[in-house]
Structures are given as structure tokens and as C-alpha cells.
């Protein structure tokens, strides 16, 4: 008989895509067995590997609570935040595959160079641009705020952009995250630079490269309807912004 109050633990096999630029020419898979509870997350598994088994395993994480957007990775072939993926939601009778997000230059293990992603983000001018300087605050109705509420939730984890097949083959494409960030200001009633952003996104590598595969919506850990936001930006690029 098992002792009262003892929480059952499981052995979970993680197969992690490793790469050390100083010694490896190609990434390779390495497996680790980790003792885990069903309340643990994939991030806890990676911690246990790094702290108890192999200190050289490299990955990013900061808050570990789904807000900072540091630990986006490909878990069983899907882009997820390691800190939001619970072990109980995975089929642990099979190994759990963990690898870096795709489409960005691999630096080490689960760490990629995020610069191309942020470059696209900066390009859409993701900040409020307003010439009117009200004495108190900018007024906005509840409906006007509601219009872009969904896209304010973005944490720039790059899960959407690196799940996009167009971005994988064409690194020049702005990608879903940049379009989401543009959407957040294009539909903001206080902003005056919507047309500038639409002109940028009207370019060859802009919204028209989107193939509506919905990978981005599926990948978003914040539940943003990314593909819908992109469609709304397309709509605005054709017939003007309706806030």
C-alpha cells in the first residue's frame, strides 16, 4: 500500500535537440529520463536536466509564468511555451521531443537568434504616434479599446512567427507577430500613423504573403486570434481602417 499523501511521480523521457556551435557541425537529439509529477511543466523537466544531469543544456527562460515570452520552443512538433505546457497534457507513454523554434538562426541548444524577429517588429513602428496633445488624457470609448484588445496580449515570444511556413522559407516575411503588433496600433483610435504601417505591410514581404494556414493562431500561447488579426489588416489595407 502506498503511503498516504505521497504524490505519484512518473519517469518522463525528454528527447532534446542539442547543438553546441563550438564542437558540433549539426544539431543532434539527446535523451534524458526525468522523474516528474503531473503538475510539473516541460520547463521544470528542462530545469531538472540542467540542474541535476547536464549543466551544459542551454535554454532561455525568465519569469517562468507565461508572461515574459522567453521560453518558446517546439514541443512534440508544436510551438509552445515550456512554462505553460503541463506534463499531464502530454502523452508521457512516449518521449517528449523538445527543440528550438524554427526559422531563426540556431545559436545553442534551444536558443535562437531573435534579432530578425525583433527587426521585423521594430519595422512596423509598434508605438503610439499622436500629434494631438490633450490637456488630460486621450479619450477612448470601451468599444474603441475593445477593437484592438486581442492584439495587446502579445508577449513577443515568437511562437507564431516561427510556426509560419512562409517565414520558414522566406526569412524576409514580416511574420505574424509583427503584423499583430501593427494591428494593435492600426486599430487604436488615438494613433495617427495607421497609413504608414499599412504602407509598410503592403510591401512585397508584407501581409499579402500570408497563406492563412492558421499555424500562428494555433501556436499563440496567449490565445490571440492571429490569423484573424492579419485578415483585418489585409481588409484595412484594401478598404481603409474601420475602428
Amino acid at each position: 500500500m502506498s503511503e498516504l499523501g505521497v504524490v505519484q511521480s512518473f519517469t518522463v523521457t525528454f528527447i532534446v535537440r542539442r547543438f553546441n556551435p563550438e564542437t558540433d557541425t549539426e544539431p543532434y537529439w539527446q535523451d534524458f529520463d526525468v522523474e516528474m509529477f503531473s503538475t510539473d511543466r516541460v520547463l521544470d523537466g528542462l530545469h531538472k536536466i540542467k540542474w541535476d544531469q547536464d549543466g551544459s543544456l542551454s535554454f532561455r527562460r525568465s519569469c517562468a509564468h507565461g508572461i515574459c515570452g522567453s521560453d518558446a520552443m517546439r514541443i512534440n512538433g508544436r510551438n509552445r511555451l515550456a512554462c505553460k505546457t503541463l506534463i499531464k497534457d502530454l502523452d508521457i507513454s512516449k518521449p517528449v521531443y523538445v527543440e528550438a523554434i524554427k526559422g531563426l538562426p540556431l545559436e545553442k541548444d534551444l536558443i535562437v537568434d531573435m534579432e530578425p524577429f525583433f527587426a521585423a517588429y521594430r519595422e512596423v513602428q509598434p508605438f503610439l504616434q499622436s500629434t494631438s496633445k490633450p490637456k488630460k488624457e486621450h479619450h477612448q470609448t470601451i468599444e474603441q479599446r475593445e477593437r484592438f484588445d486581442d492584439t495587446t496580449k502579445c508577449i513577443l515570444c515568437a511562437a507564431c512567427t516561427t510556426s509560419c511556413p512562409v517565414f520558414w522559407t522566406d526569412g524576409q516575411y514580416f511574420g505574424p507577430a509583427a503584423i499583430v503588433s501593427a494591428h494593435r496600433f492600426i486599430f487604436d483610435s488615438r494613433d495617427e500613423a495607421s497609413q504608414v504601417r499599412l504602407d509598410i505591410l503592403n510591401s512585397k514581404e508584407g501581409v499579402w504573403r500570408c497563406r492563412t494556414t492558421f499555424n500562428c493562431t494555433e501556436a499563440c500561447p496567449r490565445g490571440i486570434e492571429v490569423t484573424k488579426a492579419i485578415a483585418e489588416v489585409k481588409q484595412a489595407a484594401i478598404s481603409g481602417v474601420r475602428r
Partner: peptide, 12 residues
């Protein structure tokens, strides 16, 4: 600025 209109036109 010319290609931008073409991509949009193509999509429509």
C-alpha cells in the same frame, strides 16, 4: 512603392 500595389492587386 510599385511592387506593393501589385501584391495587393494580385491578392484581390
Amino acid at each position: 512603392m510599385k511592387t506593393l500595389r501589385l501584391e495587393r492587386l494580385g491578392w484581390i
